[in-house]
Design a protein around this nucleic acid. Sequence first.
DNA 1: GAGATGACCATTG
DNA 2: GCAATGGCCATCT
Length: 103
Amino acid sequence: MTDETQKTQFFQTLNSVPNGKVVTYGQLADLSGMSKRARLVGRWLKELPEGSKLPWHRVINAQGKISFPEGSEQFFEQKERLALEGIVMHNGKIKLKEYQWQP
DNA sequence: GAGATGACCATTG
DNA sequence: GCAATGGCCATCT
């Protein structure tokens, strides 16, 4: 069992997130078979190239917020992509109750 | 090998 | 509901 295997599993899970839904880091880690590795998930997402086909913008933290500093380019892009899928933010936060993916 | 860092999480006050 | 605290785990200096 290498970390590459887990990475593949993780990316596969991420790729199966439906349009209009979001997932948290911990949830993705759990679905990929690593319950306490949410930080590693964040690390992998950071490594992704911009042109990646993966829905990285559908990944938010457990507080229903985008994990980039507000005002940064990354923050803005993620917010924009989510808006295109019908996911809007209320007072800087997303309603996990409505938008969180439930496999 | 010790200490710091990070797209985090759960608990506590 | 929000901020502070401790915990987790891989990578970097």
